[in-house]
Each structure stands twice: as C-alpha cells, then as structure tokens.
Design a protein around this nucleic acid. Structure first.
Lengths: 147, 147
DNA sequence: CTACAAGTTCAAGCCGGCTTGAGGTCAAGC
DNA sequence: GCTTGACCTCAAGCCGGCTTGAACTTGTAG
C-alpha cells in the first residue's frame, strides 16, 4: 500500500495542505501514522477526498459529511432528502436563469414595467435558497405584526 | 407617497430591521429622511428589496448589486454571464441530484463498487460550484508539482 | 555534520452577511 | 411632564471553511 505525504495528496487532490490538516482535525480523513512529525496518508485518502468533495458539491457541510462517515453506512433517507432539496434548488435556479436572460433582452424601459420581470421578483421573494440563517422578523417585531 | 418606518418595512419584507440598516449602510436602499432619529422609508423601498432578494437568489453579492444600482442601468452582459453561470450550476446540481438518488437506492455494498457512483465522484471532482476561494495548491507546492 | 526545504503546531485572521449588546434618544400615550 | 419602548449608533461577535503567520522540528542532500 503506497503512502503519500501531504504534498502529494495536495497535488493529486488539488487541495492545499492546510485544508488537508483541517480535514484531519475534523475527523474527515485519517493519516496512518507519521514519519517523524510528518503525516503519511494512505493512497485511499484520495477516494475519501473525492467523496468529501462530492458531499460538499451536493450541499452537505463538513460536519454532516463527518457524521455520515462516522455512521459507516450511508443514510439513504438523508441522501434522498438532499436530492429533494437539490430538486427545489434546481427549479428555482432555472426560473432565475430564464428570468435573467429575459431581463437582459427585455426592452421595457424599467424592468418594473415588464410583467415577466415582476413575476420573477415574486418568485425570488418566495424562495429561500440562501442558507437558512434568516429569521424573517425578530421575535418581538413578529408578535407586534400579529403573525 | 406613503412613508414606512423600519418596523413596517421589516414586517412587509420579511427582513429584520438590522438587515435593513445594514443595507442602508451599504447603499443598497435609501431612507428619505428621518422623523427624529427614526428612518422613514418610501414605499418603493419594498420593490428595491425584492430586487435585492432577486439578485441574491441569482447569486450576486450585495456589493455587486450595489454597483448595479449605482450604474442605474442594468448591465445586460453581466446578467447574461450570471445566467450562463447558473446554467452550469444547474447542470451540475442536476447530475448531483440524480447521483444522490441513485446512491440512495443502489445495492452495491460499497458505493465505490458502483460505476454510476464512481462517475458521480469524477463529476464532483471537476466542478467548482462552491465559491471560488480555492487556490488548488499553494504557490510553492505548485511550482514543485511542475504545473 | 550542516543547511535547508518541507513539514509541524497553535492561535489568530478573513470573508460575507448579518446579529447582538450596550448605552443613548425621542415621539407618543397617560 | 413622565414613562415607555421603539428606534438609534457603534463596536464586536458569529458562522463555516479554511488561510496565514510565527516559531519550531526533522528528513535528506551535499
């Protein structure tokens, strides 16, 4: 089994060494011992990294990925849920893309005068694509607003 | 022209007052004067906020949006570029979604043994969906890697 | 044996987009 | 006129995912 030092892993994976150390610290990858101080990674780590990259691309956080690895078996329900989430994202992005293309071509003096653009605005308003840190309205304002 | 105080804008837009102040500070929205200390927003600010939300959903940063507002006219080339970017994103996410669904159903003991899954891995490896802060390999490592 | 590049640790910093907290002001209702 | 609480400002903090810097150790080439 060939062992790789961190520079080799960095080169082959395209990730900087700092990221690899960070991943190790998080428990996402493991080195199989050291030569002196230096980490030695098994060749398989590259597969792991690809898997991590896949998870990230699909929208999982590093912590989520770590917990899936820890579980050893893949949580199928979670994958399905993420797939559904991607589905919704795709739907919205598609509408956005079409809307953008339209806006770029539309001759209406103000985009506000264009019905298509207004529809797009409404769509955007309904979506919550961007990570869920929005609390809509802070608690006290909301009670004042009456729901 | 009806004037709205910040709580009303917050309520109608779904954004917390803190975010509205932040947007104002960034030059994204403007209040039309004050009553005492308190900001007064024109009703049109809601339209602006919808526009901002649209831009964010499409993937523009607040600064980008601000500069588009500052330009007063919409930069059609930029919209097109963003649409193209969305297109690529959509393509990848679609593949991801399909891959996830497959993985969730696939019976291969290890996903690594499933050809579809391996293709998905490769796809993920090629994508750069996640914001571009990756520098692949730090400069000195890259020169060692010889390009 | 020595020099040195490449590794190491740990703490702190950065980015974007807000949120939170402390401490202050002021319009409106009693 | 006094209270109250919604607003204000400013500075600092938070999140995730790393990056960066300082100070240190070590394998390896010469």
């Amino acid at each position: 089994m060939s062992m790789l030092d961190i520079a080799q892993v960095a080169q082959r994976s395209g990730l900087p060494a700092s990221a690899l150390r960070y991943y190790e610290e998080k428990g996402l990858i493991g080195s199989v011992g050291r030569r002196g101080l230096r980490r030695l990674f098994p060749a398989r780590v590259l597969e792991r990294l690809a898997l991590i990259d896949l998870g990230r691309t699909a929208g999982f956080s590093l912590d989520e990925i770590a917990s899936m690895f820890a579980a050893e078996r893949i949580d199928r329900a979670r994958l399905m849920a993420k797939a559904d989430e991607l589905d919704r994202t795709i739907t919205k992005l598609t509408a956005m893309r079409d809307g953008l293309r339209h806006a770029a071509r539309c001759q209406a003096l103000s985009h506000m005068q264009c019905p298509k653009f207004r529809r797009l605005l409404k769509l955007a308003g309904k979506t919550r694509l961007r990570a869920g840190r929005r609390r809509a309205v802070p608690a006290r304002a909301r009670s004042a607003a009456g729901g």
